[in-house]
């Protein structure tokens, strides 16, 4: 790979940063959501063990945040190749992959934070008033969609590498 002004040596470093950002921030969000919703389940299940199945919904949604980060990481990783293979990794691709990773990672962090708090307070309220279930699931879905928007932006950005 010949070093040029458009594909400098440090371009893969920035792309790798995108992969790391996607996985790290997405997992921070998913971990916060799982932990906070898990605290809520532990509080509810001591009084109403029959509600555990429904109260696990925020935990499953937090898992989906991590799946989004995983998908984008795999997508970016497939575009990377070692310089010895003769591929030309441009600086544009590096910054684009950084944008992909940051968008899905930080929206995942936001969505996981939202799901964690709504999951904790929502299942505690559901223990006392069963009609709140539909509202809780809707709020959780709107929180989840924040992470999905980040994934959509990352997927669209990722198509630009084969221009």
């Amino acid at each position: 790979m010949a070093e040029s002004e458009l594909s400098p040596k440090f371009a893969p470093f920035i792309g790798m940063g995108g992969i790391a950002a996607a996985m790290i921030f997405g997992s921070i969000g998913a971990a916060y959501g799982t932990a906070k919703a898990g605290i809520g389940i532990a509080g509810v299940a001591t009084f109403r063990p029959d509600l555990i199945m429904k109260c696990l919904i925020p935990v499953v949604m937090s898992g989906i945040i991590a799946v989004y980060a995983l998908v984008v990481s795999v997508l970016i990783a497939q575009d990377l190749a070692p310089p010895s293979s003769g591929t030309n990794y441009s600086l544009f691709n590096g910054f684009m992959h950084l944008a992909c990773g940051l968008s899905v990672g930080l929206t995942g962090l936001a969505a996981g934070y939202c799901i964690g708090i709504v999951g904790d307070k929502g299942v505690r309220a559901y223990m006392l008033q069963s009609r709140i279930f539909v509202g809780m699931v809707l709020i959780l879905i709107f929180g989840e969609v924040l992470g999905l928007y980040g994934l959509i932006v990352a997927l669209i950005l990722n198509t630009k590498s084969k221009g």
Binding site: L56, I57, I64, V67, V71, L75, L148, L155, N158, T159
Partner: peptide, 25 residues
């Protein structure tokens, strides 16, 4: 075309979630 495959993976993850909600109900 990895974009479509990635979108499919996200859709499948949401399918699992919908299935879980239905089973829980």
């Amino acid at each position: 075309n990895s974009t479509y495959a990635g979108a499919l993976a996200a859709i499948m993850a949401n399918m699992v979630l919908i299935g879980y909600i239905v089973v829980a109900m």
